[in-house]
Design a protein around this nucleic acid. Structure first.
Length: 294
DNA sequence: AGGCAGGTGGCCA
DNA sequence: TGGCCACCTGCC
């Protein structure tokens, strides 16, 4: 395939620093973006593929395979949540009375929550248990390469849940999934037995949707919250992982609190966009761990 | 070179 | 309810 099979660059109404762009695309929300040697990013979701480039002034531009180009504008708007006002949502967060939050917001200007396909988000976060981002990305890439479908030559989608029902647990393990293979295999079987279950769950109110997701093998509170936050636009979801647990202890004094208590505190303290706050806190704490800030 | 990693489920008391 | 611990295995 040649460069002519991709559209010319078009403007995406987002302006980001290099590091916020990396945090957005590669900071643990999605595991399907990859940097290329020329600094461009290439990302995939559903049957979409898109390249992103950042101009020196921070403005983002996109290009897509001509085969999927016609609906990309709409797809991009949904994926990057371009219709909701980020500034408005950020402004409702309690940054006025929460100095640490204010610092996090300042450190990652423009960081937002993605709106990824529900089923894929569930799949990726089923892969995420006690794994780092690099490894989760590898699992996802292997799942796509071996069991997904070709979007355009050289780029493959993740398998759908229905496609996963035909994949044995052994073959899943060959995708470096380890003990997660069983969860994914069993979840695929459950979803095959319950047609429409996932689509219904996607549109349920937050608490009900979360309860239902937690019925799936391998899905607990954390993975359910991630799936709802990054894959269903439920910005009130407040996933609590080891990083957030550490942050809430270190910055908010919640020593000895259990994840469920911290989640409840998070939703109460940060409000209807708690998940957005979570992403800023998460990004900040990870950067701090790398030694860039304290 | 080994310990550890964006958790969960299933045991025990 | 609360506190272990096994579960896989490829990176830093």
């Amino acid at each position: 395939m040649t460069v002519n099979d991709w559209t010319k660059w078009q403007s995406l109404p987002l302006t980001l620093t290099t590091s916020v762009m990396a945090e957005l695309l590669d900071g643990g929300q999605s595991f399907r973006w990859h940097t290329q040697s020329n600094g461009e990013w290439i990302g995939m979701w559903s049957d979409c593929a898109v390249k992103l480039a950042r101009a020196s002034d921070g403005a983002l531009h996109w290009s897509a395979p001509t085969a999927v180009a016609r609906r990309m504008e709409r797809e991009l708007a949904a994926y990057f949540r371009l219709n909701g006002s980020l500034a408005e949502q950020v402004n409702t967060l309690p940054w006025r009375s929460d100095a640490h939050l204010a610092k996090c917001l300042e450190a990652f200007p423009g960081l937002r929550i993605l709106r990824q396909p529900f089923g894929e988000t569930l799949l990726c976060f089923l892969c995420s248990a006690t794994k780092q981002i690099v490894q989760i990305k590898q699992m996802a890439a292997l799942l796509a390469d071996r069991h997904g479908r070709e979007i355009v030559p050289g780029l493959k989608s993740l398998p759908t849940w229905s496609e996963l029902t035909t994949v044995s647990e052994i073959d899943l393990r060959r995708c470096q999934l380890g003990f997660r293979a069983r969860y994914i295999h069993q979840t695929a079987a459950f979803l095959a037995d319950h047609p429409g279950w996932l689509a219904e769950t996607e549109v349920l109110p937050y608490a009900e949707a979360k309860n239902r997701l937690c019925l799936l093998p391998g899905v607990g509170e954390k993975i359910a919250d991630c799936t709802l936050l990054f894959g269903a636009g439920r910005l009130e979801a407040f996933p609590v992982d080891v990083w957030i647990l550490k942050t809430m202890e270190r910055r908010y004094g919640l020593t000895g609190w259990k994840p469920a208590q911290v989640a409840q505190f998070g939703r109460a303290h940060f409000g209807p966009f708690a998940g957005l706050a979570q992403q800023y806190l998460f990004a900040y704490e990870r950067r701090a761990a790398k030694g860039f800030v304290i």
